[in-house]
């Protein structure tokens, strides 16, 4: 299957949107996961609920909320426009934001599980060996949470690459700017006689997702290292 330049553009845009979304969300999701797994504070339930909101409300609603917040007249959108001259409307950056928000609950859940699975007694052992909190975090907690972190990344990426509802609501369908794979498939479906285009795009989308899955599987195996394989 040889891709047309338009199809290449769509694939590359989808990749760019998803990678930026997951990359931006990674530190945020990890911090949220850490907070939810380890901290006790009033309002924790509320944060937990807010994090899960994009998972449970219809994506259209998430897109609409993003419009309210980040639109030209929205509190955050207006501020960005005035201070930095940045607008996310009809831009690929807006698509990345929508994808990031939609990926957030899945990423936080995976990471939170793995953080909760860390044996706290190992961290205490490291403290008694002279390691301060930061060193313990970097050398014990983070490596032990790595499988969950990777799982979160992959889930987030898969979610981002398939993101449709919130994106089309928030940044619409602008060819070359916000027309990612799912949106391209949807608009091709609207045109009569575009079955071949739809099929090709659908195949591309499956290949992309499978490639991500395989890559993550390989990453996870490398991360697990030899520690489960017996040396002898």
């Amino acid at each position: 299957m040889i891709l047309s330049s338009e199809e290449w553009g769509i694939v590359l845009l989808s990749l760019r949107v998803s990678l930026v979304a997951v990359g931006l969300m990674l530190p945020v999701a990890f911090a949220l996961a850490w907070l939810l797994a380890r901290a006790r504070f009033p309002g924790k339930l509320l944060i937990d609920a807010l994090v899960h909101l994009p998972l449970v409300v219809p994506p259209v609603v998430t897109g609409w909320l993003l419009l309210l917040l980040f639109g030209a007249n929205g509190p955050i959108g207006g501020l960005l426009e005035r201070t930095l001259g940045i607008s996310l409307m009809f831009r690929w950056t807006g698509a990345a934001l929508a994808a990031a928000i939609m990926a957030m609950p899945l990423m936080v859940r995976a990471m939170r599980l793995s953080i909760e699975g860390i044996d706290h007694r190992l961290e205490l052992a490291a403290r008694t060996l002279g390691a301060g909190r930061w060193r313990v975090f970097l050398t014990i907690s983070l490596p032990l949470a790595l499988p969950g972190l990777l799982a979160g990344l992959v889930l987030g990426f898969a979610r981002s690459i398939g993101e449709f509802g919130a994106t089309i609501t928030f940044v619409s369908d602008v060819p070359g700017e916000t027309r990612t794979l799912p949106i391209a498939i949807y608009s091709a479906l609207q045109m009569p006689g575009a079955e071949t285009a739809v099929t090709r795009l659908a195949i591309l989308s499956v290949i992309l997702s499978l490639a991500a899955l395989v890559a993550s599987e390989m990453l996870a195996r490398r991360a697990a290292g030899g520690r489960t394989n017996h040396v002898l």
Binding site: D119, L122, R127, T128, G132, L144
Partner: peptide, 20 residues
């Protein structure tokens, strides 16, 4: 003093070697 400054050589019941 925090644990990391007490210079205690703590040997635990269950070893607690770092698995990674």
């Amino acid at each position: 003093l925090p644990p990391e400054r007490r210079r205690a050589g703590y040997i635990f019941q269950d070893g607690r070697l770092f698995p990674h």
